[in-house]
Design a protein around this nucleic acid. Structure first.
Lengths: 140, 140
DNA sequence: ATACATGCAAACAATTTGCATATTA
DNA sequence: TAATATGCAAATTGTTTGCATGTAT
């Protein structure tokens, strides 16, 4: 999904495109990894020194509600990344830098019928570890 | 793993078996589901009205460090359950009551070699939904 | 007796909310 | 201008910590 499409969707839903909101969206969507609210704040503050956490959180909340973001609970804090609802897949998540890459196969396909009486409403399949760069100590 | 074994391990590690600690352990280990610190506190307070969150958290921390507990991040809070390190498996997790049951097959076995350059240090594979009881509205 | 635990209170950190002001459409 | 967003400050919630006292070994 392109940033323009996101903006379009927000507009259609009656949300306004403020400068801060646009910057927040671009900050998240230019990354291919999970970022925390604090990381987003820091980035956005480069251009808008006045922004505060509540604006970040309010926007994260709106974007999540519209399914434009994926949210994953890290230790003590949540992190967010662009949602890729169109193609169902699973991530390799670097626990250090948040970098994500896509697993080439979907293990869920192998699991139909395994759950029995349990009514499945969702699942989380993430493999944690260190990406190539973090293994080489590139991200301090 | 039996509660007695847990007590034994703690003893061996130099930890003392206080009444509160024993009650906390029994509370967690008699459940087959993820419970929150608050739930544990409530249970334990039935017998020890004086216990407070810090005691709960300190004990959870000790038990986790010894790999006697599995911890999973729910929305806004962590939940804990008995660790079953001996037999590797995956859970079906009820998002309402925390009930867990074991998946009869291990999907991780199918994934060797898929990660490439990524150094895998752990994974989370959980399927969320409603267990039979919660589907029938038994746990308000 | 001595080391580890508890309980209290206070500190922290992530996230949320009320309200007055500012900004978009 | 009318509706939505922002910024500030304060509140909330989950979790952690310092310290004096209590308890298991």
């Amino acid at each position: 999904m392109k940033v323009n499409e996101i903006m379009q969707i927000l507009k259609e839903q009656g949300y306004k495109l403020t400068e801060q909101r646009k910057e927040i969206i671009e900050t998240i969507f230019k990354q291919n990894r999970y970022v925390s609210a604090k990381e987003i704040l820091n980035e956005v503050q480069d251009r808008f020194p006045g922004v505060s956490f509540d604006t970040i959180y309010r926007n994260l909340s709106i974007l999540s509600d519209l399914d434009l973001l994926e949210e994953t609970q890290f230790e003590g804090e949540a992190k967010y990344r662009v949602s890729c609802i169109e193609d169902h897949h699973h991530h390799l998540v670097c626990t250090k830098c948040g970098q994500t890459s896509v697993l080439p196969e979907c293990p869920m396909d192998l699991l139909q019928g395994l759950a029995g009486d349990f009514r499945v409403t969702g699942h989380k399949f993430e493999i944690y570890g260190l990406c190539k760069e973090c293994q080489q100590g590139k991200n301090t």
